[in-house]
Write a protein that binds this DNA or RNA. Structure first.
Lengths: 338, 338
DNA sequence: AATACTTACAAAATCGATTTAGCACAGGTG
DNA sequence: CACCTGTGCTAAATCGATTTTGTAAGTATT
């Protein structure tokens, strides 16, 4: 009834525990174990169905074979796609994944990282939230393998993987221009994340390139800490005051959804009265009539690349912390809102 | 630079490791450690910031302080709400949670459970999928703490927590009747889960109670294994053939979303031409004009109850496997689709 | 005064693996 | 024949905690 241990297997095979361990870890040759003995051991292992006690292995080797995935919100659709790819990739490589969400709370972010540290994860995949800078610096100092996703901190040279935000917005703007829209509004939020800055930079840049004057009035920056209702009201007011706009660019899917609701309330028909485009796709954008044009993030690509960067760090832990920064291109999905 | 161990703390405090352990585990009294010594130890611990090595504790005590949460799909909104509550509850109780999704794959479900077993989780929270019966039976045989959520297997007496499906549908049906709808269709899917059976039973029961004849033609059972497109087509055909219906009851939110799309394509205005109501809420139902009436699951309640049932099992592991089956009431959220 | 019993800790075993060091034997060398 | 070198394995240390057993000193008992 009790769990089978290495010792049991050794006894059953008539050898020492260490010998079994060598064979199981592929060091039979190196330790010059006779093929005969090795085969005997393997047959006993297979017949008995022995499996090493992960915890014991972990304690001894210091490797938990576990990765920590820290995301902003576990309910977000970004996370959902991310998690799937990361988990299957990780499993393929013999790693487990534990997920944690910061729930947009820097305090909690730090605590989570520490918690994962206690849990002894071998590496971290993090979508950084404002306020996590120090924790991430600490991880780097401790030479813990880390890969950031979706965002990064300019001052910190950690490997990261994200969508090419500038290029993505450009795609969207070009599309709008092509469709004849010129009076394009932009809705963002006051979170100090690099990707938002980048997106806005691309927006103004795109206008400039088209010789369309930038109008401050056309840009709305919502307050992250305001309530949903509050923001909705602000957004409605913004749209009302800019009735002459022919299109709105939403910087995140959260904002886009808010926009949908606002335009619904104002009974603005899309795209007739006003077009809408959003950075980052969402189920709703596909379903909501008439379907919202979006810039889709290459989430699978990001996940896969992130894992591979992390593995590179895990493999040669003594090797130099390769400074790998990757930006993958997004994809424009044209629906009927533009 | 290295990690602080119990031994280090002991040396720093001038006592034996065992003494430190006793103090840290609240056995100071029991082991008659002088307050003086205990305080000294505590101060050293606090100043040094020592934290026990989880893996070592795990190995020695056999308790991983980790729970396994197995859900159908990690991207589902049901999971999202569930995970949040469970994680915070678990953390409060000193437990970690590892998530796994079966991705609607019985094979994978079994493997997952085994994987978690290797990982040595202390208990399981599972939303069962067809085909996991045997794995769950095995867990029970091994006296592993298990709580099922959202569904259960009639033959297996494991504790479970779910919404009162019968009552939920009744709420919805009563609401439809109240609004004057009589020709009510029902859309379900051919997955052999008890909650679906229960919902359908409630639907027919409700009709009978109102003396409305049950018409087989009004019930559509989609094929789970068909593609989304395929199902959409089937659903559209079903609606076309039942143009005289005045309302449709969707048995799951997946079906409801499909319904939205189908009705959108057929340009059926809701609720004018046809009303819609769905079991289980979803973001889209709130946003999609005109807003879909739903029966909301008490997800937080389910999560909280499930955790508490699991903890009860974890506390007194020798105690009898209390056969606890809980059904929590759902809530009707009236929106404009009815 | 000898024995028993507390008190207050320390020492050592233990969890289940990995890994280093060691040991017995065979064969080759000077 | 003493000495060295491979072979092929075993013994023992180790990871960092918890828990059982031991033990010296002080107090109480007879």
């Amino acid at each position: 009834m009790k769990r089978l241990t290495l010792k049991d297997v050794a006894r059953m095979a008539g050898v020492a525990p260490s010998t079994v361990s060598f064979v199981l870890n592929g060091k039979a040759k190196q330790m010059r174990i006779r093929d005969e003995v090795a085969q005997k051991i393997m047959s006993v292992v297979n017949q008995s169905g022995y499996e090493p006690h992960r915890v014991a292995v972990n304690l001894r080797t210091g490797q938990s074979k576990t990765l920590g995935l820290i995301v902003e919100s576990i309910s977000g659709s970004f996370f959902a796609s991310l998690a799937r790819t990361i988990e299957t990739e990780a499993e393929r490589l013999g790693y487990n994944v534990v997920y944690c969400s910061t729930e947009n709370n820097a305090e909690k972010g730090g605590e989570l990282i520490r918690m994962l540290g206690r849990q002894m994860v071998d590496g971290y995949l993090i979508t950084p939230a404002p306020g996590m800078e120090n924790e991430i610096r600490r991880l780097l100092q401790m030479h813990k393998p880390v890969v950031l996703m979706d965002s990064y901190f300019p001052g910190i040279k950690a490997p990261y993987v994200l969508i090419d935000n500038f290029h993505g917005v450009q795609l969207g703007m070009d599309h709008l221009f092509e469709r004849g829209y010129r009076k394009i509004g932009y809705v963002t939020v006051d979170v100090s994340l690099i990707q938002l800055a980048e997106r806005q930079r691309s927006y103004t840049q795109a206008l400039k390139k088209k010789d369309i004057p930038f109008r401050k009035k056309r840009v709305l920056e919502l307050n992250y800490h305001d309530s949903r209702e509050q923001n909705l009201a602000t957004l409605e007011a913004f749209i009302q005051e800019n009735r002459d706009m022919d299109a709105i660019f939403f910087a995140t899917n959260y904002l886009g959804i808010l926009g949908l609701e606002a335009m619904g309330r104002l009974k603005i028909s899309m795209p007739k009265q006003m077009a809408a485009i959003c950075f980052d796709d969402h189920d709703i954008f596909r379903l909501y009539p008439p379907g919202i044009t979006v810039i889709e993030q290459p989430i699978e690509g990001i996940a896969a690349k992130a894992i591979s960067l992390l593995m590179k760090q895990l493999d040669k832990q003594s090797g130099p912390i390769k400074e790998s920064q990757v930006a993958l291109p997004g994809r424009l999905i044209v629906r009927s809102s533009t």
